[in-house]
Design a protein around this nucleic acid. Structure first.
Length: 300
DNA sequence: AACCAGGCGCATG
DNA sequence: CATGCGCATGGT
């Protein structure tokens, strides 16, 4: 191991990297990272520089190896912060487990999914675009469309015979056209939404920093849903994945509803009062509950 | 081969 | 405020 190009982050209690990898894989074809064996490879942009990292477990540490790009102190500090946020390493999830254990239907999760963390999407623009792509279509198709978009417009690092992409910048997508996106099988509306959101990022009317500066969850949700293409589901999803907001419950989500009925919490999606009452028992941990329910959905 | 997919916006009652 | 409808097209 080249210590110059390697960083170790101590892992917290109740952390299991393989559980997290399961979620990042799930038999889907995500173009923004690659999983091989028990490691994860991802390209990132730091300032103007591209960097390729490999994340794996080394004893009681997560190891970040810099495969390509500059391994200076500044980049290393960025990477520690990035991976810590990505895997939500700073959160003590014991209180969540204590709540799960009081619920006969969900208590099994504290063993079966032990150490599973809320996997983030640090890039707000990416999170929103991903939501728009995924609205009302099946996930396999959504990943295909995302790949077309990313491979056409994203920057990449070639390493070891493979290309590793990063999500396109708003400036780039703001310059494309509905026709081009239609060619990638975006619907007319979704193409308009993505371009509209890209322009909002370019002109500064929407940004992660601006959202974070708002006083509370309700204000952030309202700000997000004022943009075309961002409804309640997308706003909650983005707040949950990018800002790690506990209250971000993607209401109406098909996967969530399926998991709720699979656990006999509801019979059909109209029972919104039951859903609210259920989530009320998990104050402060709603988004984690959503994540664990998604985790419970076996893929094929 | 019909029915469903990690919804959303807009038009009505 | 709640309900209904069109969207677009791949998966199963």
């Amino acid at each position: 191991m080249d210590t110059d190009r390697s960083i170790l982050i101590p892992t917290p209690a109740l952390f299991n990297f393989e559980e997290c990898l399961w979620f990042l894989n799930r038999n889907y074809d995500d173009c923004l990272h690659e999983i091989e064996e028990n490691s994860l490879i991802k390209a990132l942009k730091i300032g103007v520089g591209l960097i390729l990292i490999k994340v794996s477990v080394a004893g009681s540490f997560l190891e970040i190896e810099i495969l390509s790009g500059e391994a200076n102190a500044e980049n290393k500090a960025f990477l520690v912060a990035y991976v810590t946020e990505w895997f939500d390493l700073e959160r003590n999830i014991q209180p969540f487990y204590d709540l799960l254990k009081t619920d006969g239907r969900l208590a099994y999760m504290t063993e079966k999914y032990k150490g599973f963390r809320l996997i983030g999407i640090a890039n707000l623009f990416e999170a929103i675009c991903w939501c728009i792509i995924g609205q009302q279509i099946n996930l396999a198709f959504a990943y295909k469309i995302k790949r077309r978009l990313v491979e056409q417009f994203g920057e990449k690092i070639d390493f070891d015979g493979k290309s590793h992409f990063i999500f396109p910048a708003p400036e780039v997508l703001a310059q494309t056209s509905v026709e081009v996106l239609r060619g990638m099988q975006f619907s007319d509306k979704k193409a308009q939404y993505v371009i509209g959101i890209a322009n909002a990022f370019v002109d500064g009317s929407l940004s992660k920093e601006k959202l974070q500066a708002l006083p509370d969850f309700a204000a952030r949700k309202k700000a997000l849903t004022s943009f075309k293409g961002i409804g309640a589901w997308t706003a909650n999803y983005a707040l949950m994945k990018t800002l790690k907001e506990p209250e971000g419950i993607p209401h109406g989500d098909v996967g969530l509803l399926n998991a709720l009925s699979a656990h006999d919490i509801i019979r059909d999606r109209s029972e919104t009062d039951k859903i609210d009452a259920f989530f009320n028992q998990y104050k402060g941990w709603e988004s984690y509950l959503v994540f664990y329910l998604w985790r419970s959905l076996a893929v094929k």
